[in-house]
Design a protein around this nucleic acid. Structure first.
Lengths: 245, 245
DNA sequence: ACTGGGCTATGGTCGGACCATAAAACGGTA
DNA sequence: TACCGTTTTATGGTCCGACCATAGCCCAGT
């Protein structure tokens, strides 16, 4: 006997969603296109404005739509391509809810960033690497607050990912890194007086990473970034296992 | 002079969202917890029910909340962990809108699945691999419709990813594969009378992949899955470049 | 040509009514 | 007491109509 899932028909806003999604998948609704005003579209679809709005909100959450009030050609609901914040929030919440273990997240970072660094060593432009170098420069300041150090750290990694030329991998890298932002931050703050030494060591690794990428040495860069991530996330995983240590 | 982004205060539902997200991040709202009924929560937060509902809809989209009507302990809005469909829809729409090129998607699959197969070769259980084998078994039928073949194909890959033990990577694998589902399907259908031969070749590769995983030969399995993906996605990318070819 | 004040299109919010669903409470009968 | 059908009620889902907020547009007056 087959299994029977409840059919759960209706839920108007889901139908609306399907309808819009269909248009997107069929290519009839492209990035940049404007949707009709809510007050027109709702009756055209035969639903209430509230139901339509809930569907639009979903699209907005996914990062394929923005809505701005007012008048003129830029007002109203427009299709866009902004996956980053959407993916970020999604992973952040799921990590917080424990959908994914820290080990899994660390392993994913390793996989994604090995690829990023290898690709960056192959194809990143001088200009992009200079920007990454500028980020590292700012991280040298020993008086830098931990929070800012952490943000620049993320920025460096994401920058390399972007420079690798693969939009999807760099979006994923950014989202995964951001999902453990507070955890990393807490771990860094917990180092207490050892922080300056930790920061120095991290800076050294980052500098070497950039050097290897510049030298076009993909394999070595990949290996180092793996050690780099395991090194720090590793302590994180350990701390999580023995909280008071 | 620094840049000034519009501050865009309010948007009530976003504030509500932040408030809920805060509770999740603080660990005060865990998977399985129930939220108060909308009619209580809305006034408690000082917002209208509609605004609250839009925030809840966002949470639902992200896959951290489900809402069911009715009475009893299982009714109402509950926190859950269901990232898969959320990520699937997100990537599917973004691929459709052209946020990511086919090359990027293919490259991401390579990166993710190399890791999956390597890990599976290391740690997958006999039982899980038997299930993967059962999927392959069903794909042998030469009379199988292309659509079903495609779905089973996805299932095989996702199954291996799951068996690798990394939830995050397997979720990503599934979502990425699903985002190009229709594209792959169209390509397969376009093979016309060559389809049986194509299917046979794919089956052969799948069988060999499973054999390598069973043998615990991670490196070779990774290399083969890379060739496997590039082989088929490769034609896809080429076709996209020259549509009428 | 400029400037300022109203106009209007558009999304955002609100409150309240009503519908749909599913469990729980109830009550009657064997 | 055990069962079964009916009613109640808690809960999300939908709809409507009003009003608020925002930002470009239009036009009158200088």
């Amino acid at each position: 006997m087959a299994e029977w899932r409840p059919v759960r028909q209706s839920r108007t806003h889901e139908l609306v969603l399907e309808s819009i999604e269909e248009q997107v998948l069929a290519g009839q609704l492209k990035a940049g296109d404007r949707l009709p005003p809510e007050r027109e579209l709702a009756p055209a679809l035969g639903v209430s404005r509230s139901a339509l709005r809930e569907a639009l909100r979903v699209m907005e959450t996914i990062g394929v739509l923005v809505a701005t009030a007012g008048r003129g050609p830029d007002a109203g609901a427009r299709m866009v391509q902004n996956p980053d914040s959407a993916l970020g929030r999604l992973l952040r919440l799921h990590v917080a809810l424990g959908s994914y273990s820290l080990e899994d997240v660390m392993e994913s970072r390793v996989v994604l960033e090995r690829s990023s660094f290898e690709a960056a060593a192959r194809s990143a432009s001088e200009e992009e690497l200079d920007e990454a170098a500028a980020v590292l420069e700012r991280m040298q300041d020993p008086a830098l607050p931990v929070g800012e150090f952490n943000d620049l750290d993320t920025r460096f990694h994401v920058h390399i990912a972007r420079s690798s030329g693969n939009e999807l991998i760099s979006t994923l890298t950014s989202a995964v890194r951001e999902s453990v932002r507070t955890l990393i931050l807490e771990a860094e703050e917990a180092t207490g007086e050892d922080w300056p030494e930790t920061a120095r060591a991290l800076n050294e690794e980052h500098t070497e990473l950039l050097r290897l990428v510049r030298a076009g040495d993909g394999p070595r860069a990949a290996d180092l970034v793996e050690r780099h991530i395991r090194g720090f996330h590793g302590t994180l995983v350990d701390d999580a296992a023995t909280p008071t240590a």
